[in-house]
Design a protein around this nucleic acid. Structure first.
Lengths: 160, 160
DNA sequence: TTAAATAGTACTAATTTGGTACACTTTAAT
DNA sequence: ATTAAAGTGTACCAAATTAGTACTATTTAA
């Protein structure tokens, strides 16, 4: 399974929550922890990282809190994941940093792995935070080979 | 970083190698280990799993070995990963198996997470094993927002 | 019959990840 | 000025996952 760490998952939860309630100016770590049912230390840690990643802005001191640095439709899922888990890459080989792989000078599939990574990151670049707020509904259909493939559509009601 | 385990990475290496040399009828675990510079026990383990996943066929006994179950252009990277690491899903919530998440009955972003997972798996469904053999070349260009995005093109020479 | 190969199971070690604790800084309200 | 509520930074520990290895059984061409 291609895995996204729990922390990145939580981060998506928090960002979605802030985006969904963007009428509220500031969100404190405490409130977000309560509302998302996540432990406060973890929430604090995540908000800190999202701040450092430039996805949130903060106000310190009493009556402080966090809010989105940009509009929900201008923040991609890829960015959120990149901030919390580093650049999206499936293997060390596929990052831009050299010297991590001892086979590097002669590795014949290095570029191919990059292609795979970029396919993933390209897909996640297109999913914006605002998309996560919309009541999208996922169904599956069968393609020519008989495999189940996803189909995304809108539903009329607001999901809870 | 969205991570693919080392073993799945190795698996891609092995599959690519077999696809590249599909003129050779059978590939023994020993040969593949030598050629890929991977430890034999690990290679054996992977080939076994790829066999059980229906991606390889095997011939037992002396003069035995493995070969592809289908043509390289009919095996997707998504399938290989799914065989080695289970169904592609970024979090437990996004698999089809219910009951893994205690927030499930009221989790407002469950479907959204599915969408994210499907974006990834949809992207990897389109990358076939045969694509990994082609001398594709990856470059980056800047998009409207000034971010680097991937661009894939063909190169004239065969890379080694 | 033998040797070379795959097939299956179980275990151990290493790494990564998740989570927590604690001390420091900032700032609105009193 | 003081206080209390909030964010900020660092360091550390525990748990879960993953990687890797060893060993045994089975199959089959020569």
């Amino acid at each position: 399974m291609i895995r996204l760490g729990k922390l990145a998952d939580y981060g998506l939860v928090l960002m979605t929550h802030i985006a969904r309630n963007h009428d509220r100016l500031l969100h404190t770590a405490r409130d977000l922890a309560l509302e998302s049912r996540l432990p406060l230390p973890t929430v604090s840690k995540l908000l800190k990282e999202l701040l450092q990643g430039g996805l949130l802005v903060s106000h310190r001191g009493i009556k402080g809190g966090y809010s989105l640095a940009r509009k929900p439709r201008e923040i991609s899922v890829a960015e959120i994941i990149a901030v919390l888990e580093g650049p999206i890459a499936l293997t060390e080989c596929s990052t831009d940093i050299s010297g991590l792989c001892d086979l590097e000078p002669c590795c014949p599939i290095k570029n191919n792995q990059r292609i795979i990574s970029q396919a993933v990151s390209g897909a996640l670049d297109k999913v914006m935070l605002s998309d996560l707020n919309q009541p999208l509904h996922l169904t599956t259909i069968r393609n020519a080979r008989g495999n189940l493939v996803p189909a995304i559509g809108f539903v009329s009601g607001r999901m809870q």
